[in-house]
Design a protein around this nucleic acid. Structure first.
Length: 184
DNA sequence: TTGCTGATTGTTTTG
DNA sequence: CAAAACAATCAGCAA
């Protein structure tokens, strides 16, 4: 009954809900319970859970960020082919399993399915992921520039940029994936 | 109320 | 080179 919760939130304050959506749930992962430095067990074993735990637990974005400081403008890493595939897979999975609400379920199913896919099948996903990566690099460049700008100054991207940069939100033209090669 | 957690693999990043 | 971390999702639970 998530509706209850949702309704509850809405009832109390819809603003909160908005925030939740924005955060999406990626904000975090904090908490350090065990820092196990285990070697690459190997995905085949299928027990990378420990590693995962460590990863989540470590979590550097929320607190304790010595090397990388929290950058609100820092672009997020591009989704891997697997993630791209997952995005679509999730939809299908939900359709076939509307009762399943656990994210882990989709993850497992997606993982197995992914393995089942062949290079040819993964090709389109990889292509998309590759494109995503290109954009990521571009964003990174812009981000780097910002870094230089905000190197010491407290300039938070605002003034000068406005004049030159025009609003940008819909400037996304990346719908050109015509690279379909069926060489078979 | 609000954020974390779980589970998947791949890519990115840093040491 | 290698290991670690982080990318999305969604509902449920805990502080």
């Amino acid at each position: 009954m998530k509706w209850l919760l949702t309704t509850f939130c809405c009832f109390t304050s819809g603003i909160s809900l908005l925030k939740m959506k924005v955060t999406r749930g990626k904000g975090a992962v904090k908490k350090d319970k065990n820092e196990v430095v285990k070697p690459v067990e190997d995905r085949a074993a299928g027990k990378r859970k420990a590693v995962l735990k460590a990863s989540r637990s470590s979590n550097k974005r929320t607190k304790n960020v010595k090397s990388a400081k929290k950058d609100p403008n820092k672009p997020k890493r591009p989704p891997s082919a697997f993630f791209v595939f997952l995005e679509e897979f999730r939809k299908v999975y939900k359709q076939e399993h509307p009762n399943v609400k656990a994210v882990s379920a989709v993850g497992k199913a997606g993982g197995e399915k992914w393995k089942s896919l062949t290079d040819a099948e993964k090709a389109p996903f990889e292509a998309k992921a590759a494109k995503r990566k290109l954009d990521y690099e571009k964003l990174m460049t812009a981000y780097n520039k910002k870094q230089e700008s905000t190197e010491d100054e407290d300039e938070e991207e605002s003034e000068k940029s406005k004049s030159e940069v025009h609003d940008d939100d819909d400037d996304e033209e990346l719908e050109e994936e015509d690279e379909e090669e069926d060489d078979d």
